Each structure stands twice: as structure tokens, then as C-alpha cells.
Simulated scan of single mutants.
Amino acid sequence: MKLIPVLLLLLLSVPAFAKQPIRVVDIGVIGLASHDLFQWNAQTRENEENGRFDLSTIFDFANGTKIYQGGNPKNSSNAAVYSVTQNLVSFYAGKKATLLMSREVTEEQAHIIARRQTNEFFIAMVKESYQRFTNARFPTYALAQSVTDEEQGVMRALHDILPGKININRNLTQEVLEVTDFKLAMTQLSPTEMMQNVKFFDGKYDEEYLHVVIPGFPDPRIINLKEIDQAFIAEQTSYNLDNMLRELHIYGKFPFFGSLVDFTSFGYHLENLFAKGICNKYADGSPNPWNTIAIDCY
């Protein structure tokens, strides 16, 4: 009989430990975070990004001439990432305009201050989305090392979570947007659309990602994202995508308890990666002038 109160307590406590649903906004935030950390050059087999959260993917692409277009074209690759990118660009533009209207700073000073404020806003978004994505606390420490191919491989395996379709509301009717349709990639999603839940980890890529149409001349190309990720992980890491997806499938079966970081054999790389992302200096020891987080990097 003594077991009954204990069981009741456990049943009442379980919802508090339930994994939070992952939302479309999290897909956009973590996607943009990945772009800010990694830019893989398939020819040189090297990462051309700097492995830090400084929004260089927006502000430094093409020597800063494409800021208002969202920087790297990758940031317009799907509606979720595009929407987050454009929200950050709007945030930056508003902060910069306010500073210039004060007539107390120069154009360059306004840019520097506004970019720092935008990066601070972005990191706050990353922290929130990371916690929903992993069901784990965001790292409270920072690492000064370079990001690794293993970490990029883990981020690629998480493409499992990408939704092939999302619901949007247009002209008073609900429509289905195919996320991989390049003609719809630059669709600005509303706050309500961004807050909708996506299907949880299940160890499978949605069908849409197995035949993505890439526009080109004279003919478009069709790519299979899973095959591309599989090749990268096999060539650049010690992991195997099929095994990683099996782990994600099992992880997704448990609605309560457990974090992605601790549950999977590769999840610890995520914690290390994001701890590197918030470091306020680059891997060569030079300061990251855009990061205002006062955490020592080791």
C-alpha cells in the first residue's frame, strides 16, 4: 500500500520532466547558428567560418555588402532560417537607425553598437532554442578551441528534425508550405507560424529532403540531403549516420526524461560546440569584438 503514494507522486511529477516540443522558430534559430559556425568548402575540405557566434554569416559575407539581404544566401535556404535572419536584420536596422537619429555617433559607431546588440539578442535566442532542442541546460562555460568536423557531423545528423512541410495562414486560409521548395524559401513566417510544433526526432529524414530541387542553368539539380550528410559523416568523422539516426529514433520514443546530450553517444559534441560558439575570443586568441558575454574561455 505504501507504493501507491509513491506512484501517484511519480505520475504527477512526470509532466514536469517532459521534453519540450521543438518549434519552427527553433529550426530557424539552430539552422542560422549552424551557418554562423560552419561554412563547409567541399573542394578544400575545410570549414570557412570562424566557429563563433558573431553573426559573420550575415554581417561579414561579401565584405558586409549583403547585410540587408541576410548575408550568406544559405540564410535564405528555407522559410524558418530566412524568417529568423530577417528578424535579426530588422532588429539591427532599428537599433542603428535609433543611434543615428541621436546624432551622437558616426555611421561606423552606430554599426558597431547595433551589431553587438543584435548578436546579444541572437545568442539569447540560441540559448532558448538549444534548451528545447536538446532538453538540456545551455553550457555555462566557454571553450576557446576550434570547432571540429565531428561537431559539424552531429549537427548534420540532426537534420532528422527538419520538417518537410509546415502550415501557414495566407488570405484567411491555411495552406501547407513545402519547406524545400526553392520558390517559397524566402517566405516570411508570422510569429504564430513560427511557434507551431514540428515532428519530434524519429530517426528519419522527411521525404522532401531526399529529392531537393536546386535551381540552376540550364537545368536544375536534384540532391539527396541524407546522402550528402551520410558521405560527410563517413569521410570526416568517426560516426555513421545510420547508427546516429537509430539513436535519435530511440531517443524520440521517450516522451519523458533524458536529454539529447546525455542520451546519445554523440550528443556531448553539441554541448562542446555551443560552448565554443559563445567564446568571446577566436581560436587564434584574438578577441571576438561582437560577443559581450563575460565568460572566460578555456
Rank of each mutant, 00 (worst) to 15 (best):
I293M: 15
R115K: 15
F121K: 10
I278F: 08
E193R: 07
L8M: 13
G70T: 03
V25E: 15
Q188S: 11
D36E: 04
A79P: 12
S83G: 01
I222N: 06
Y251A: 09
E235N: 13
R156C: 14
E235R: 14
R156P: 05
P163N: 14
R246N: 14
G164F: 12
F254C: 12
H111I: 03
Q236R: 14
E151G: 15
N63E: 05
F256E: 01
H211M: 10
N50F: 04
V84C: 10
Q131H: 02
I22T: 11
T173K: 12
F217V: 14
D242R: 13
D229S: 12
V154L: 10
G153K: 11
N288R: 05
K281Y: 10
A275W: 10
D296A: 15
I168F: 01
L32F: 06
D219S: 15
A79G: 07
D54W: 00
Q145K: 15
R132G: 05
I112Y: 00
G153V: 14
D60S: 05
I67E: 05
D26Q: 07
L241Q: 00
V213F: 05
L55V: 03
S76V: 01
Q131I: 05
C279R: 10
Y268M: 10
K204P: 01
F138N: 11
T118L: 13
R23D: 01
D229L: 06
N240V: 06
S76I: 03
E49H: 05
E108L: 12
E150F: 12
Q236A: 08
F200S: 13
V126T: 04
D202S: 08
E151H: 14
L241T: 04
L32D: 04
Y82I: 12
L270E: 02
T98L: 11
V25D: 09
R221S: 13
R246D: 07
D181M: 04
S34E: 14
M155I: 06
Y205C: 06
A110H: 01
